[in-house]
Design a protein around this nucleic acid. Structure first.
Lengths: 150, 150
DNA sequence: TTTGTCACACTAATTATTGGTATGACACAA
DNA sequence: TTGTGTCATACCAATAATTAGTGTGACAAA
């Protein structure tokens, strides 16, 4: 890899990641989804994982604790998520979707799948595997304990 | 001060402190007070301070946080103390005596005063000031930030 | 273009709790 | 008398969630 490539990969990653997010958020706004992209990530993970703690969820969605606290605050305020005191550990909550949250996920999921598909037009399964392999390798190279699931 | 005195003061302090505590706890047991000496210290401070946090109380009674958590647990279980979520800070509680706790303090206070008086028979006000001055000096000598109120 | 608002990311610090270990005091059994 | 069990407390290390502050990006309004 040349010097230019070394300095370019970060730019490419950042630009693309932000574009994907901007596009999604615009579509979310147009669709009156009532959640941001990040809030959706949390809702989706809660729909797939039952009664997780905030620490566990933070690891799943790769967000830091203060940020997740605030996202959960917003989602609780919107009525989609509920904190339940942990039965065995007073330092911890268990998070779960409210009925309203379950309905919201059910309603949004197909629409969001379509939005996500747009980015992969003209790319195929082989491309996706390459994309995944390369990005995971980069991540592992920079992570002390390699422990990815993507 | 001689070498012997240097090695003796710790023994004298420890032996006396434990004797005072043993004597008090025995009297508490005989009187069916339903609290230990340390629990009483907490109750007394709560009767003199309104809606304190656990951190503030820990400083008042010079106990560490885990120990105080457990003492408060016991007193809440006995129905003398109540934890109320802090209105502005979700990490914190405000502690207060229940009505039962207030009655308990009122009932025990005169009895405990009598118990405490026993140790000062044949000693006078001058002795107490000497005692206080010396013990506070020792404490201050060993404390980085000298900030006593005894 | 500038400003304001909102949401998120990151850092440092805080509050109370958990877990483990040790000690002292006391009661009970051998 | 000695040993064991129980309870309460002290101390240490670590943990879970929160607070406060700062910065950035995205977007809307002036």
């Amino acid at each position: 890899m040349t010097q230019e490539q070394f300095s370019k990969y970060s730019f490419l990653l950042d630009r693309t990641a932000r574009k994907v997010k901007q596009y999604a958020q615009q579509k979310f706004n147009q669709g009156d989804f009532d959640v941001t992209v990040d809030q959706w990530l949390v809702l989706k993970n809660l729909s797939e994982n039952v009664l997780v703690s905030q620490t566990e969820l933070a690891q799943l969605v790769f967000k830091d604790h203060p940020t997740l606290t605030r996202i959960i605050d917003i989602l609780c305020k919107k009525g989609y998520v509920e904190r339940v005191p942990h039965p065995q550990d007073r330092r911890s909550f268990q998070l779960h979707l409210t009925n309203e949250g379950v309905e919201k996920v059910k309603a949004l999921k197909p629409q969001i799948t379509k939005i996500r598909e747009k980015a992969w037009e003209n790319l195929n399964e082989r491309d996706f595997e390459e994309f995944r392999r390369i990005l995971n390798t980069i991540y592992d190279n920079l992570e002390e304990h390699s422990d990815h699931e993507a």
